[in-house]
């Protein structure tokens, strides 16, 4: 459970309360990980939080995490200036399964849910077996749309990118509406489509339903689930969701089997 020291070498603001931290291992290079996996990040003296890796797997000298300021640990992360030492453990959990992707791929993100998908989209666009990549993104407002530069890069590399917001002033030229409304007009072939969905659970549920209604196989819809994670190792018991230990069996799970019931389970 001992973290490896990393130095914050860059901090980029994505929106009001979201920053991307580039971390460099002290005296080394980042270890291998797969898109969709997460790390346990320590702010020394504050605590530890589970944060998905938001940069693509590869041989970059830094590994990026996109953090939203929602609690003491993430606040410390979001305000950590370059030079700060943080602790990193991992990588933990399941991934988006990009190696097996082929045909059409629909990537749907809500809010900060785009962060764990960012590396996956990079990889999809480089995969020879993947024909078309559709990226649909929902955000509260135009100011909350993250990774604007990436969205443009992905579009130039052949992804069909669409962004929608819940509300906007007239300066916004994009879509206004629910993220599922972007799925309807997409010309993917359901029989050869897999989908990666990440966002709030309600958003993932409705997005998955829209994909299922079009005929996408439930086993080919992957979603990323989140619960309280304190160890990443399956020891602490906090991340249970029914039969799943999400740090071990998740965060990425397929929609078929256990998940439809789980997402509707009244946990409260």
């Amino acid at each position: 459970m001992r973290p490896v020291l990393h130095r914050v070498v860059d901090r980029r603001r994505e929106s009001d309360d979201v920053v991307t931290l580039a971390l460099e291992p002290q005296g080394g290079r980042p270890w291998p990980f797969r898109a969709g996996q997460f790390h346990m990040l320590s702010a020394f003296g504050v605590g530890e939080a589970a944060i998905s890796v938001s940069s693509p797997p590869g041989d970059a000298p830094v590994v990026e995490h996109t953090v939203r300021d929602v609690g003491p640990v993430t606040h410390a992360m979001c305000t950590a200036p370059p030079g700060t030492l943080v602790g990193v453990r991992g990588p933990f959990g399941t991934d988006w399964g990009i190696e097996g992707a082929a045909g059409d791929v629909v990537v749907a993100a809500g809010g900060i849910g785009l962060a764990p998908l960012r590396g996956a989209i990079h990889q999809l666009l480089a995969s020879p077996r993947v024909e078309r990549v559709f990226v649909v993104v929902g955000a509260r407002s135009p100011a909350q749309v993250m990774f604007g530069e990436d969205l443009e890069v992905w579009a130039t590399r052949g992804a069909r990118v669409a962004v929608t917001v819940d509300v906007a002033d007239r300066g916004w030229r994009g879509h206004v509406g629910l993220v599922t409304s972007l799925l309807g007009p997409l010309e993917y072939d359901p029989a050869r489509t897999s989908a990666l969905v990440c966002g709030p659970e309600i958003m993932m549920r409705f997005t998955a339903r829209a994909l299922l209604d079009r005929g996408v196989e439930p086993s080919r819809i992957r979603i990323s689930l989140e619960r309280n994670m304190q160890c990443g190792l399956g020891w602490c018991g906090h991340c249970q969701l029914g039969p799943l230990l999400l740090c071990r069996d998740g965060p990425v799970v397929t929609y078929d089997g256990a998940v439809p019931g789980l997402l509707l389970e009244r946990e409260r």
């Binding site: 809500g110 809010g111 929902g138 909350q144 819940d166 599922t180 966002g199 958003m203």
Partner: peptide
């Protein structure tokens, strides 16, 4: 239905 979901302020 889409409007109801947007009322939740889903993402933020």
């Amino acid at each position: 239905q889409a409007t109801r979901l947007r009322l939740l302020d889903l993402y933020e």
